[in-house]
């Protein structure tokens, strides 16, 4: 297991910390394996709930143990500047991969509006599609396709809850920056207060989003099954919501760590990593607001 790093050669810095042996990954793999098997059984109509929950539990416990160990190592100053940089870069590239994940859904939205619906409606080189298969269909947005899959629905206007949510997220971007300044200035009260504000804003956002979903399902007849509009709407906002949830949980963890006095003005990768993630979630939301709700 973990060893105290050797005192470094240069300037009192410990050497690059290489942990010796770890059991968290195998636990994570088993957890994911169980989780996905359970969910698959469920999707096939079998009884996989217990298996899925078991898997999820293993994954969650694993994350606590793994991150807990990293946090302990970090607080024990095992990590030199280079390790810190590795974490930072790792987080950056992870976020980039998330960006590409969302790009697939944004691309889908673009393709549906720019190509498939116009073609179905008789535009471009595929004009015959409309004439032969869907003669009464006219391309428009929003749309649930030529067969009006899912029945009539209403869309979610941008200027109600979504605008409010935009304000909330933008504000949370400000509060986390203020908290960061507090951390760097050694002002722990400012840090704790504004980080708490960020956490609260995140959860309020989620509350509004839940409200919006209920509204969509019960009053607007807007569901995942509402053709391409419903599909893209819920896929994009749903995965975003999932990321906000993860981000808010991470913020909460960070907040507890701050209260415990973790992080120093010049060494706080954990804080920054979460902050970056939060900003990423923020930017994705702006994309959603513009392309999903507004345009």
């Amino acid at each position: 297991m973990a060893h105290a790093p050797t005192a470094g050669t240069a300037a009192g810095e410990p050497k690059y910390y290489v942990p010796h042996g770890t059991t968290w990954p195998i636990m994570g793999s088993i957890g994911l394996f169980t989780l996905f098997i359970g969910v698959s059984i469920l999707l096939n109509g079998g009884s996989g709930t217990v298996v899925a929950l078991l898997g999820a539990a293993v994954v969650i416990v694993m994350m606590f143990l793994w991150f807990g160990e990293v946090i302990r190592e970090s607080e024990a100053r095992y990590y030199n500047g280079q390790v810190d940089k590795s974490f930072r870069m790792g987080m950056m590239w992870f976020i980039l991969s998330e960006v590409m994940f969302f790009a697939a859904f944004f691309g889908t939205l673009y393709y549906a509006r720019q190509f498939s619906l116009p073609w179905l409606g008789g535009e471009g080189s595929d004009a015959v599609t409309n004439a032969v298969l869907w003669p009464s269909f006219e391309s428009a947005w929003p749309s649930n396709g030529p067969e009006a899959v899912g029945g009539n629905f209403q869309t979610m206007g941008p200027w109600g809850v979504p605008a409010l949510n935009t304000a909330l997220l933008l504000l949370s971007g400000v509060t986390i920056t203020i908290a960061h300044h507090g951390l760097k200035a050694g002002n722990r009260a400012q840090l704790n207060l504004f980080l708490l504000a960020t956490v609260l804003l995140g959860f309020i956002f989620l509350g509004f989003q839940a409200y919006e979903y209920i509204h969509a399902y019960t009053e607007l007849n807007l569901t995942l099954g509402s053709g391409i509009y419903g599909s893209t709407f819920f896929m994009l906002t749903g995965f975003h919501g999932l990321h906000v949830t993860i981000g808010a949980i991470m913020l909460t963890v960070i907040w507890f760590r701050c209260i415990r006095g973790h992080f120093t003005p010049d060494r706080h990768f954990g804080f920054e990593g979460v902050a970056w993630y939060w900003h990423f979630v923020d930017v994705v939301w702006l994309g959603l607001f513009i392309f999903v709700y507004w345009l």
């Binding site: 549906a112 498939s116 396709g145 899959v149 995942l224 053709g227 391409i228 509009y229």
Partner: peptide
């Protein structure tokens, strides 16, 4: 499993997507 129409023309999607 969830009734989306990404790749089905009936709902405005496209298998080619």
């Amino acid at each position: 499993f969830f009734g989306t129409s990404f790749f089905s023309a009936a709902g405005g999607g496209d298998p080619v997507l």
